[in-house]
């Protein structure tokens, strides 16, 4: 028997689904997903992927839990304030599912470590909160031919898209360069509803599950936007750009590099 009785019970709702079944659950259990950022987006993504039985989950974050995080970062509890986020993230995921392996990477992801970090994973979830990190993860994933889910949230809005090598645009095709510092406020300055992080982070987990199991349509070639106040989802079709600096036909970016982050962004 492939699964123990306990595993059959734990994953019964997956296995019953024709689209997932025994094979899909096995794929999930053999997969490795990296989540960059144990914050608002990373929290639901980490919990759902742990619950789904993703075999190895990497979580990368250099910060410690702050009281102001708890409004949206459901991986962490009041007792975790002051603790490294990756530690409380690991504890929360293992509490949900002791079968999985969690790799805690207590690092700021930068141009020097990003390729080594993503190398051992099948899919990357960008749960970061600043533009330099988002461009860095995009460039690294394009260069390493690693599929990833981009997402961003602010106030009552969120967006996400999925990059798969050879299918559709990368983040840089859509947004060529980061906006100038202070042109766009961070969520510390602008505020965000916790449940928006829950919606978008859960959608990122859903994209990872579909990619791993190999079912359905991914958000490749489209950007999904969510407006919580208007209660509207929009799916914008976006083409790959032949002249994209990183995934284009003659790329000028051939290795990851760091944009300078503003002081405020770094500690978010």
């Amino acid at each position: 028997m492939i699964f123990s009785n306990a595993q059959m019970e734990r994953y019964s709702r997956h296995i019953i689904l024709k689209e997932v079944g025994v094979k899909g659950q096995k794929r999930l259990m053999e997969s490795r997903v990296l989540i960059v950022g144990a914050g608002g987006l990373g929290s639901p993504a980490a919990l759902y992927l742990a619950a789904a039985g993703v075999g190895v989950i990497g979580i990368a974050d250099a910060d410690a839990v702050d009281l102001s995080n708890l409004q949206r970062q459901v991986l962490h509890g009041a007792a975790d304030v002051g603790k490294p986020k990756v530690d409380s993230a690991r504890e929360a995921m293992e509490a949900v599912n002791p079968d999985i392996k969690v790799n805690a990477h207590r690092i700021f992801v930068n141009a020097n470590n990003v390729l080594d970090l993503i190398e051992n994973y099948d899919f990357v979830i960008d749960g970061t909160d600043n533009f330099p990190a988002k461009f860095l993860i995009n460039d690294a994933c394009v260069l390493a031919r690693k599929p990833f889910s981009h997402a961003g949230i602010i106030r009552f809005q969120g967006q996400l898209m999925t990059y798969v090598p050879g299918a559709g645009p990368c983040y840089r095709c859509v947004f060529e360069t980061p906006p100038p510092p202070d042109a766009v406020p961070t969520c510390r300055q602008a505020g965000v509803i916790g449940a928006v992080a829950g919606v978008i982070g859960s959608l990122q987990a859903m994209e990872a599950v579909k990619y791993i199991v190999g079912i359905g349509q991914l958000l490749t070639g489209s950007l999904l936007t969510y407006d919580a106040l208007a209660m509207e989802f929009r799916k914008l079709k976006l083409p790959r750009r032949d002249d994209c600096a990183v995934c284009g036909d003659s790329p000028s970016i051939v290795k990851p590099f760091d944009y300078e982050a503003t002081v405020c962004e770094v500690s978010l």
């Binding site: 059959m8 019970e9 994953y11 019964s12 019953i16 079944g21 025994v22």
Partner: peptide, 13 residues
């Protein structure tokens, strides 16, 4: 529903 799940897992082999 584990009855069906267990049967399904066995049939996979």
């Amino acid at each position: 529903p584990v009855t069906f799940v267990k049967a399904k897992v066995a049939m996979e082999e």
